[in-house]
Write a protein that binds this DNA or RNA. Structure first.
Length: 401
RNA sequence: GGGGAGAUUCCCGAGCGGUCAAAGGGGACGGACUGUAAAUCCGUUGGCGACGCCUUCGCAGGUUCGAAUCCUGCUCUCCCCA
């Protein structure tokens, strides 16, 4: 392990990009004790695997968790296989559809794949909250429920609004914050991370830990990442997101194409680059340099150094990249252009593919194909480009034997 | 329980018997310009190997040569009164 930084230095690094550390005095105390006793802090992050569609917005908190690891602390990642079935009511104006355990488990696998790429294995503990919720008896559930009052639950706006507007609140939704808080008790968390929308849930964890005779955790909230449109929060519904499983080239291009006003935020929340360096990059006359750093750094996390560097160089040189493109398999060397675009997943219908071709948005190895009736001859390794930032590499599938 | 309004293509929203694949706006996508940014301009926005054909206007029937438009029933949503 590298040399241990002082509590003050650690705090300064950890505060980068965060909205709130509360209570901050307790954070300082915990860090000081950790340095003095050489004991890592247990830093909890709970994730409900409610969707297989992960985007960079989900990565912000993971990134912060990693920063804790880099300072020698222990990451405790909780997969909410039970809480996921309840559904977090935070920010919801109606009861969520409940998920089945199979779905939750499948989503969890996807999530873990990416989480492992970002976090280091060393100080990592992965727990599922079904581990303690599944075997609970009704009596134990009642015991837990007795720790919370209805008034405290109704303090939070989403519940209050629903209650006042007579929108139903199912009892199981009331349990959600309690469950999340109990997770903190079970893993004896020193710190818990979450988005700003998690403020209430995080504080319930503190209260419960105190009830169970533990030292309460410190809560850290992080901003919700703004989407590529620069306005609304990143979300699938607004179609302003960058998926984590995006082909590297696409991810690079999307990151490069974000509005200038967003560059500083993205660098702060998605990379480990220090604040002074970020300021310098963003105040430079040519902001493209900052975008280049951002795109390279983020892509490196997901696709590896080699692909990221290759993309960076191809961008600087204006050439077609060697690495990082999505592959499209074709079994014939001659194909109708419309079908090629469709099979690459760049159009959902022939009509749409035709339009793209007619509008001059489709090119093969840099040569624009404008006739939608055209059959093209393919060679293995050719690059298909659609629009400004959708690319794919052609792979001819050879029939064996 | 009583009374009223409405369900239109991704979203909002016109259309009220043929000229409707359905105005307009938003969004999205493509092109030009640029810095693969913003702004601006132009174009596209149901499907089909496609100048023709097929399927769309809550659901199911009916009237008509012809229906998103008229009639009947059903489902759902919203508002007012109790």
């Amino acid at each position: 392990m590298k040399k241990v930084l002082s509590a003050g230095e650690q705090l300064a690094r950890l505060k980068k990009g965060v909205v709130e550390v509360f209570p901050e005095e307790e954070m300082v105390a915990k860090l000081e004790r950790s340095v003095a006793t050489k004991t890592p802090l247990r830093v909890k992050l709970g994730i409900d695997p409610t969707t297989p569609d992960l985007h960079l917005g989900h990565i912000v908190v993971l990134n912060k968790l990693r920063q804790f690891q880099q300072l020698g602390h222990r990451a405790v990642l909780i997969i909410g296989d039970y809480t996921g079935q309840v559904g977090d009511p935070s920010g919801q104006s109606a009861t969520r559809q409940r998920l089945r355990l199979d779905d939750v488990n499948r989503n969890a696998e996807v999530f873990l794949t990416y989480a492992r790429r970002l976090l280091s294995d060393g100080e990592l503990e992965i727990r599922r909250n079904g581990e303690w919720f599944a075997p609970m008896s009704f009596a134990e559930v009642m015991e837990l429920a007795s720790k919370m009052t209805v008034a405290r639950l109704l303090e939070r706006d989403d519940f209050k609004n629903r209650f006042e507007k007579n929108v139903p609140i199912s009892l199981h939704e009331f349990f959600y914050p309690l469950m999340q808080g109990y997770d903190s008790v079970m893993v004896k968390a020193d710190v818990e991370l979450g988005g700003t929308d998690q403020r209430y849930n995080l504080s319930v964890g503190r209260a419960l830990q105190r009830d169970f005779g533990q030292e309460p955790q410190v809560c850290i909230t992080l901003p919700l990442l703004v989407g590529t449109d620069g306005e609304k929060k990143m979300s699938k519904t607004y179609n302003n997101f960058i998926r984590v499983d995006e082909p590297p080239k696409t991810m690079f291009d999307k990151l490069f194409s974000i509005p200038d006003s967003l560059v500083q935020t993205y660098l702060t929340l998605l990379t480990d680059i220090e604040e002074t360096e970020i300021k310098r990059l963003c105040s430079a006359s040519d902001i493209r340099e900052a975008k280049l750093v951002l795109a390279t750094d983020v892509v490196k996390r997901f696709a590896g150094e080699k692909a990221a560097e290759s993309l960076r160089e191809s961008y600087i040189g204006g050439t077609i990249p060697e690495e990082g493109l999505k592959d499209v398999e074709c079994d014939s060397e001659s194909i109708w252009i419309v079908n090629l675009v469709k099979s690459a997943g760049f159009a959902s219908s022939s009509s749409e593919a035709r339009r793209l071709v007619q509008q001059g948005g489709v090119s093969l190895d840099g040569e624009t194909i404008s006739n939608p009736e055209q059959n093209v001859n393919l060679k293995d390794g050719m690059v298909l480009k659609v629009g400004k930032n959708r690319w794919a590499r052609i792979r001819i599938k050879r029939e064996k034997k």
